[in-house]
Design a protein around this nucleic acid. Sequence first.
DNA 1: GACAAATATTCCTATATAGGTATACAATTG
DNA 2: CAATTGTATACCTATATAGGAATATTTGTC
Lengths: 116, 116
Amino acid sequence: MARAATTADAFNAVAEPRRRQILDVLAGGERPVNDLVRQLGLPQPQVSKHLRVLREVGAVDVRDEGRRRLYRLNGRALKPIHDWVKDYERFWSERFDELDVVLEELKRKEEGDGSE
Amino acid sequence: MARAATTADAFNAVAEPRRRQILDVLAGGERPVNDLVRQLGLPQPQVSKHLRVLREVGAVDVRDEGRRRLYRLNGRALKPIHDWVKDYERFWSERFDELDVVLEELKRKEEGDGSE
DNA sequence: GACAAATATTCCTATATAGGTATACAATTG
DNA sequence: CAATTGTATACCTATATAGGAATATTTGTC
């Protein structure tokens, strides 16, 4: 059985790091394919292929400008990812809290042992 | 060329929705495999397979308790996902900001038309 | 109109996998 | 000790893909 298609949802689309890179660049503003090609140092066909995936999950939109195709980010498509992962933030934030407590206790111990 | 392995990183591991579900359940606390099997209504071998992936990306930790294996969440492993997607929050938050402005203007208009 | 630029798409391939089925192994129970 | 429980894993299969190489199509320039 195959994995879910890369175009199945945003999670699958952005699992591929190059596609995340493309989104990162587009976060800075609308771009033609050529810009992405140059900026990412990837071959043009590759970039087009990745853009197609991103387009199909709705993460980018495209408009024609003559022979150029300008792509822009649709960040809303990434919201499901954020919505899912944000609930896990407490698992590393609390960790920091616990670490602070432990460090505080260690500090007290050191002060308590300061006499040795 | 194959896609990156599901065990390549957290992004690839959680692209599969069942694995996200597993993490969601474990977010509620340490669990034996059997609990996950029953709670998710998945066959046991499937659950074990998914758990192995999650274990390899570090998203879960396991300890033996007799013949039972208890799995617990390591939420830190999901931080890279959060770190990446959080910068995109502005792309839907600003949208909400704009919507608020529009709604505010509509409200003012309605209040202005309140005399009719 | 010839040529170049920009880009999408086709063809190909080796690779990994999600689920199904069956099995192996260890621990527990009676 | 036999039977049961709990779980990991092996074997199998159909499927999708990331990149490479090549190509097709459209638009722009001179």
